[in-house]
Write a protein that binds this DNA or RNA. Sequence first.
RNA 1: GCCCCCGUAGUUCAACGGAUAGAACAGUUCCGUCCUAAGGAAUAGAUGUAGGUUCAAUUCCUGCCGGGGGCACCA
Length: 584
Amino acid sequence: MKQKIADTLMVIMTDLGIDDAEIKIEYPENIEYGDYSSNVAMVYSKRLKSSPMMLAKKVISEFDKLKLDFIDTVTSVSPGFINFKLKANVVAQGIINSVSNPIKENRDMGEKVMIEYTDPNTFKAFHVGHIMSNTIGESISRLIEFSGKSVIRICYPSDIGLHIAKSIWSMQQHLADIPGEAAPIEERTAFLGKMYVEGTNSYDADPSVKNEIDELNQVLYDKSDVSVNELYEKGRRWSLEHFDMLYELLGTKFDEQIFESDMAPVGLKIVLANMVMSKNDVSKTMRSEGHGQHTGGIFEESDGAVVFKGEEYGLHTRVFINSRGLPTYETKDLGLNVTKFQKYGDAIKSIIVTANEQNDYFRVLTKVLSLLDNKDGEKTLHIGHGMLRFSEGKMSSRTGNIITAHALISEIEKMVMERLVLRDLSSEEVDDVSEIIAIGAIKFTILRQAIGSNVIFDSAASISFEGDSGPYLQYSAVRAASVLEKSSKFSESSVKLPYNVGILEKLIIRFPDIAVRASLEYSPQTVANYLLQLGAAFNSFYASQVIIDEKDPLSNYRILLTKAFHMTMVKGLWLLGIKVPTGM
RNA sequence: GCCCCCGUAGUUCAACGGAUAGAACAGUUCCGUCCUAAGGAAUAGAUGUAGGUUCAAUUCCUGCCGGGGGCACCA
């Protein structure tokens, strides 16, 4: 219908002498203005030497002559908008159709898109920052899937580097305190986290320790010490086990896990093959010639390190190989991204989600990728998200300490449970439901606002679960489901269409457009804000009338509308990675 | 010093260059014989500042003020 209106306007504008008109059909800000609106009259009034209102009226009179069967009225409104109102029965029929023909995604059918997110560090805590990355990455993945593309979810855990050397050094000082394998996974990983913090403190405080740890780092790369390798394998295994648990809890299933340790040699090879040639170095670099034409290489030596000079591209210089000859994360990341495109050569895009403190770094990295033969940088998109901060309450008082994902989730879960005591639920249900609600609350807080800016997590607001929140949406879906359960004896075959439709219907039929826009813009918040409107419309509908009423011939329609709402809300929440509990 | 991002009600957030700048929380009022009140209805309150571009600017451009992040061997 939207397209039909646009096509019709195009014809009219062409007749009026504008054959290159750009027709944009929008949703009016206020839903009472109409179902669709167009601004053509304002855009082209000057060229047609008319006033916007006069042109709008002219367009409308032409439009009316064509008598489109689904249009009720077309009106012009100052300063020159043209508003289109659909016939009520057309909208109502749309609702019924949406129930009988639910939207299907063509998952795994279309072009491939790679997306990397979460990227935790072994030996360190999986903290709230990783929840941010995971929540945003998962939602963007689902949006892309919804648009019909095939998504490759990639995780890049860090399992090599200085932070590991710091942890292992501390472990060596506390060999007797290392928990046994039987200890709970949280206890084992908490121990590792503690070791990392201690190691970092010693590294900064004592130059001789710094030296020891730097050397230990080398030993780790070389794998030259059996006892070090043992500690390393143990800690790595524990961390990865914990991560897998958290991914499942958060609802992510990665297709590909690529380890930093494997990328070190790959990256090194690429860097060394693309060095600026010095005169007596030419013979050494000859072997890289088969790879193509490098106009003087990409990396150069500086103060004993190998760097990329970004200044000539408006970027800054970064070290790729340090003066000890070890690859920095720049090099490993380079190896990673080249590897990704080697594995999935047919991918049209590679998205990387990280905190926005890495924005400038990723500009450098994508530049380097673009300078390589395959120009992978041109297909690479970095999305930087903000930080999760805590405004008040228990969480913010833990200054200095990193807040782990486990701590946050269990804290919120506890608060939800207190609330659920008032409900009529079995204890198993409470466990299940409180987890779904807690995760939904956290995820929604993250996703309801623009990705780039910091999220202020107000524990008090998030647990009150009033107003704009994940639980508010989950609750609206649960109520709808409850109505549907009670209405099972009603048949869908005899539906009488209403004479009027409300905001609820109009919002429901917008859903596909909203999802498409959110997918194109990588903006889960578009969906989140839409769902808030949708949930409010349903709650208002729910409060203002009785849905199931055996004496009312329109009852069947309202039940179908409730069903359409429920399906839309569940699907919308799915796009955000949020589940709907069975009851709450 | 250089580069990037951000300044919207008391607070936390919205607003494809468009209409009367939307919500929520906090405040002040209502709604409990009814399908889950984690709900609904009402009320009051905001675009940092000075210019520019445009039929139209919270949105684009410039200056200023204020906040955050990043700039060589950490990830």
